[in-house]
Design a protein around this nucleic acid. Structure first.
Lengths: 247, 247
DNA sequence: TAGTGGTCTAGACCACGTA
DNA sequence: ACGTGGTCTAGACCACTAG
């Protein structure tokens, strides 16, 4: 019976480490059946709840697959998942110790066109917040932000001082938990965009199109053009996590 | 006492939904203290273990913060996290019902230069696998893959039939659980790359540089150039998940 | 000192899958 | 029929934090 309770901070974690070590070392390969709950109970002298919740954690994190009636198996390899943490651009620039300046090119409440209405799932003609902001770092234009928002779901969006704050920051406060999707492309700027961002014709830009929704509906859609050194995204790569315990 | 055991698939999930609903609706805001375990026990007529593991799940997923002795609190808003699932390009093309063709431009075992040795944390002159593969979809060049790998950690890499399979696929089998980082940029191709990918001069490309390591060290470094419709990445946006239960 | 969360036990009933 | 995992209970001891 394996007993390392004191040294390792809990039976639960001992079991978790046991399993992950075996998987990492290749002793247990994808598809392999691993010991059952009752076998772990004997190995560790643990109760079933302890074993169960250790294996449950690992299942939620994508390491295991469990089938009622059959057993617990090492999950098949998953695709790489790259994770990018997007920060508020104002904070990002300030953290670098640089100066941020925003040029507000558009900021108004409009009526949704048919196309926009479809994207937001609202009625055509409904009020829609529209903005266009050029962000500069140390005087150099690095990002052009084209933004639309549903004022129903993001109240007071017209009150945001876009020269000092961002819709992003507002979102964080009002809709801290949300979902969305994002598309990243390499693009060339239009003539207008080229002038605004003060880049040479033919400069490659990173375009990020992001749609964000809360349970009530689409909150905001943004198209972000990044230029120069800012035309980069850095992220972590991990095995994809199962979407465990959806709710 | 709230009882919805039958309708909702478990007390645990009822409690999880209770909490997430309140957070999503804004009834509980960041930093707010939420009911204690014993209060939830009374509300749901549940045992402490059930309540505890429901709240534990939510903590692991970044929704809550728990402090022994103080209580449970709504976690402060986190930055957007965009998650991109990278698939094996061969599988991706085949799933689209198209034909995949790989042109192997380089495939050899070299000796690591000083620079490469530093990136892989190996000794200069150590063997290093190097490859350059051009991937075509329906005959059209869409991706140029420049790849290096440490043969110590990725055995048999010279044996991979790069015209039919990928180093990616090999990695999935041999190193299913790994970590890494990734950088995405918008770039213009070099003259060589432009010719190989058969794009016009000045076409913007998506460049993905990925470094992958296992517990033993850096396994592989890849630089991927994506052209045309393939110069896109689509991902999901979610609140960042706490790195819970590290081990 | 009273309340909080962290951990664990030893039972229990159920649905499912394999044989 | 039996073993598997899914779920839940009713206790317990501990360390920490607040008043």
């Amino acid at each position: 019976m394996i007993k390392e309770k004191i040294a390792s901070g809990g039976l639960r974690h001992s079991i978790i480490r046991h399993v992950t070590d075996h998987i990492m070392n290749g002793l247990w390969k994808a598809g392999d059946r691993i010991p059952s709950e009752s076998e772990f109970m004997q190995m560790y002298g643990a109760s079933r709840m302890t074993v169960h919740h250790a294996l449950r954690d690992l299942t939620a994190r994508g390491y295991l697959l469990r089938k009622t009636g059959s057993g617990t198996f090492v999950a098949p390899p998953r695709p790489y998942t790259a994770e990018y943490a997007h920060q508020d651009i104002v904070e990002e620039i300030i953290e670098r110790g640089h100066t941020h300046e925003a040029q507000v090119l558009r900021r108004e409440m409009t009526e949704a066109t048919a196309e926009q209405a479809a994207e937001f799932s609202i009625r055509p003609g409904s009020p829609l917040f529209a903005a266009l902001v050029l962000h500069r770092e140390n005087g150099m234009a690095i990002e052009l932000e084209e933004r639309y928002a549903n004022p129903e779901l993001l109240p007071d969006c017209m009150a945001i001082d876009l020269s000092r704050s961002t819709v992003f920051a507002r979102l964080m406060l009002v809709r801290p938990y949300r979902e969305g999707n994002e598309t990243v492309r390499a693009v060339l700027p239009s003539d207008d965009e080229q002038l605004l961002l003060a880049v040479e014709a033919g400069s490659p830009l990173l375009e990020i199109t992001r749609r964000t929704w809360s349970p009530e509906g689409v909150v905001t859609i943004a198209r972000i053009l990044r230029a120069r050194f800012h035309a980069v995204m850095r992220g972590k790569v991990r095995p994809a996590v199962a979407d465990a315990v959806r709710f």
